[in-house]
Design a protein around this nucleic acid. Sequence first.
DNA 1: CGAATAGTGTCTATAAGACATTATACT
DNA 2: AGTATAATGTCTTATAGACACTATTCG
Lengths: 245, 245
Amino acid sequence: MPDTPWTPPPVLLAVDLVILTLRSAQLHVLLVERGIEPYRGRHALPGGFLSHADEDLTAAARRELREEANLDEARLHLEQLGAYGALGRDPRGRVVSVAYLAVAPGLPEPEAGTDAAGAAWVPVHDVEARHLELAFDHRQILADGIERARTKLEKSSLAAAFCGETFTIAELQQVYEAVWGTRLDPRNFYRKVRGIPGFIVPAGSQRRTTGGRPAQLFRRGPQTVLFPPLNRPPSQTPTPPRTDP
Amino acid sequence: MPDTPWTPPPVLLAVDLVILTLRSAQLHVLLVERGIEPYRGRHALPGGFLSHADEDLTAAARRELREEANLDEARLHLEQLGAYGALGRDPRGRVVSVAYLAVAPGLPEPEAGTDAAGAAWVPVHDVEARHLELAFDHRQILADGIERARTKLEKSSLAAAFCGETFTIAELQQVYEAVWGTRLDPRNFYRKVRGIPGFIVPAGSQRRTTGGRPAQLFRRGPQTVLFPPLNRPPSQTPTPPRTDP
DNA sequence: CGAATAGTGTCTATAAGACATTATACT
DNA sequence: AGTATAATGTCTTATAGACACTATTCG
């Protein structure tokens, strides 16, 4: 253990975003097409390097959210997924990525002519089924982000982040069904959701019509921790949690 | 969006470890006393900078585990907690720490004269109750590590990592009680644990005596995902999950 | 024997899942 | 009326929690 004046090796830090949303009852992720090498032409998660040494990790994530996805940073959920630092993950050299999970309410297609040009919402199924290959280790990062969302639906109010300011119970159910990939009984779901104190609160007795009886509108309540939890039905292929990126 | 040949700012990467174990039915964490500034004399999580640019994050964590804690890397649980990159967290400059959670079976005091000299097992309660202040943002990292352990006990076989190769049901129960900070009914616990397929398997009909009827010994089974889960009893102070480091 | 710890059983309250019915809008 | 969606109710079954008892070692 030498006492030499030794300087730790600098490493390049990047930020990558898994931005999830619901579009026509399907879970989508925002992907960009890479314009430069490496992986030119390949789809990738939006992200980039820290812009300057005094930029916070979260600030960098929010900046990418704004620049690459044209998303309002304020009104969406953002949490860290973890750091990805495997050796060969970036052919350019030693790059460690800190991945973030963002959840946004259903939004229109990213507009051409904006900074978000080249970005597009892609059904996550297309990636999971390997119809679409991603750059770097982004397939793994996306899988981790989806898995995080799946587990957090159970005990947190994350589902509301997929919805707008107000929403119906049926819309909320669609979130659970799309993210979990299961069908839920509307009657049991209704009873369960309304039985969780502080999860959702009636928003005036508004209504919204699509041909049947108008539905009550709700907004998210003060409670972020759900109790009792909404348990995900056991599936045939339980996704085992990843030990380490 | 300029096209100038711009180089992203390099950042120093460190690794910090939350090493948890059980000593006399109390949850302990391994802390070192800092010998140099900043925070000289203060207790801190074991950790350090990446030793060279070609070192994996996980490899660095394992190296610190070996050097600072003198722990056998092979036989313990290790998982990433996340990256901590707040701006003022290290007075020396721009340092981002990737934190890892390690769980070890009950072990003797770190021996003086080894690399682990200066390290000591400290009851986590002493830190939580602010009887002991930690360096940097290590109090937060520790809190996150404990919270991670608490949640993972429910649906993963992490509890077995606190035990030795073989263990009794009562020992396993002590793990849950110490980490969750609750009392559990031995009879219900026994029934529940044995009812989870693949969690624990009888290890020969060994025994171990402390004055009463000898207990069956078990070892961890093949199943890492627990179903049905062991639910943590609702507490008065539910720890809300942290959004972002 | 009595003390101490291990293991098993039984009852009850509560929650989950399946399923039927009523309510309120639309064309 | 007929159709579509929302909301509520009932029944059955599984699970969680409280609690009593038997079993096997020790001194």
